[in-house]
Design a protein around this nucleic acid. Structure first.
Lengths: 170, 170
DNA sequence: GTTAGTGCAAACCTTTTGCAGCTCT
DNA sequence: AGAGCTGCAAAAGGTTTGCACTAAC
C-alpha cells in the first residue's frame, strides 16, 4: 500500500516506473525498515540479477529528494552506511542498542513538541527531523557489566568492517 | 577550560598527553563546535605542519569512545563527513538550514522529556542522543520560493563534493 | 625502558560520475 | 522518436589499518 502511494507520487512528477524501480519500491515497502543500500541491492539482485548497485543508489537518492523515504544513520552502529525507511508513519525516534544492535522506535509527544518549538522559536520551516538515541537495551544492560570485567583481562576489538565486506565478496 | 577537564579525564585513564593531542584538544575546545576531521586537520597543521591526518582521526575516535566529544552529521549538508563538538553543554538539537547551511542549537525541555520517556518506556540506558532537524531558516524561506521558480527554467546542480576536494588538493 | 602513540603508505567501504546503450511513454 | 534510465568501469570522498619509528611516562 505504501508502494502504491509512492508509485502514484512518482508518476505525478513524470518519473518513469521502470522494472528496477518497481522491484526496489516493493522491497522498501514490504521489508519495512532500516535497509541500507547494500542489503537492498542484495535483495534486489535475487529478483533481477542484472540490477546494478548504482541503480540502487540512484533510486534511493531520488526517493530521498522526493521526500518519499527518510535517511537514517542509526548512530553508525554497523558502519557508516545509511539506512532508509518509508515516510509514512508518524514522526518517531530510533533507539539503537550499542551492544546487540536492536532498533526500537519511539513515538511520543516530545517529538511533536520539539518540532513546534523549533518552528516558533527560530521561525524555521522544518522539513526533516531525525532523532537517534544510543545506549543499552534492558536485556544488554546486565550482560554489559560482565563484559567490561572480562575485557580488562582479554580485550577484543570486533572487526566492524570485516563483517560487511565478507558478505560482499563472491 | 573544557580543555582542562578533558585533559584531566584523559590523564585519569592513563592516556598520554602528546603534543599533537594538546593541539587538537585546544582547537576543539576554542573553536567550539562543528568541526569536521578535515578542517580540524587543516587548522592543526598550521600549528604543527608534521601532524598527520590519521592522528586527527585517531584522536577523534578516542575522544568519542571516551565520551568527551559528540559526533554529528548535520543532516549531511556539505557531505558525508562527521562533525564534532565537546560534550559540555546541556543536551541540544541541531537545526540546519538546507539552503545556507547555518546551524542553530536548540535547548529545550522536549529533549530531556524525550530521553526520560525512552528510558522508562523501554528500560533503556541512554548514553548518546542526537537530534538533527533540517529545513529552511527564516531568512531563506522567502528566497527559496524565488529559486524554485528560476530552477524550472535553468536547473543547476551545485557540485557538493568538488568544493571540499578543491580545498584539499596541493 | 616500556608501552602507547605517531607518521607514512596503502587499503578499505560507501557513494558518485561519465558515458554508451537501452527502454519507457 | 526522444528524454529518461540503466549498466559498467572508474573515480571520488571519508576513514581505517599495518608497520616501523618516536616519544611520553
Amino acid at each position: 500500500m505504501a508502494q502504491d502511494s509512492m508509485q502514484g507520487s512518482l508518476k505525478e512528477r513524470g518519473v518513469r516506473l521502470t522494472r528496477q524501480r518497481q522491484i526496489l519500491l516493493e522491497l522498501i515497502d514490504k521489508t519495512g525498515e532500516h535497509l541500507d543500500a547494500e542489503r537492498l541491492y542484495q535483495m534486489a539482485k535475487e529478483k533481477d540479477p542484472k540490477l546494478n548497485r548504482v541503480t540502487v543508489y540512484r533510486t534511493l537518492k531520488m526517493l530521498k529528494l522526493g521526500g518519499l523515504v527518510d535517511e537514517l544513520d542509526l548512530m553508525h552502529y554497523g558502519g557508516d552506511q545509511h539506512y532508509y525507511e518509508t515516510r509514512l508513519k508518524q514522526e518517531h525516534a530510533h533507539v539503537i542498542c550499542l551492544r546487540c544492535g536492536k532498533v526500537e522506535e519511539f513515538f511520543g509527544d516530545p517529538l511533536q513538541k520539539l518540532r513546534k518549538q523549533i518552528e516558533s522559536h527560530f521561525g524555521f520551516q522544518v522539513l526533516l527531523a531525525r532523532t537517534e538515541v544510543g545506549g543499552y537495551c534492558a536485556h544488554c544492560q546486565t550482560l554489559r557489566a560482565r563484559e567490561v570485567e572480562v575485557a580488562r583481562v582479554a580485550p577484543v576489538t570486533p572487526p566492524k568492517r570485516a563483517r560487511r565486506a565478507a558478505a560482499r565478496r563472491p
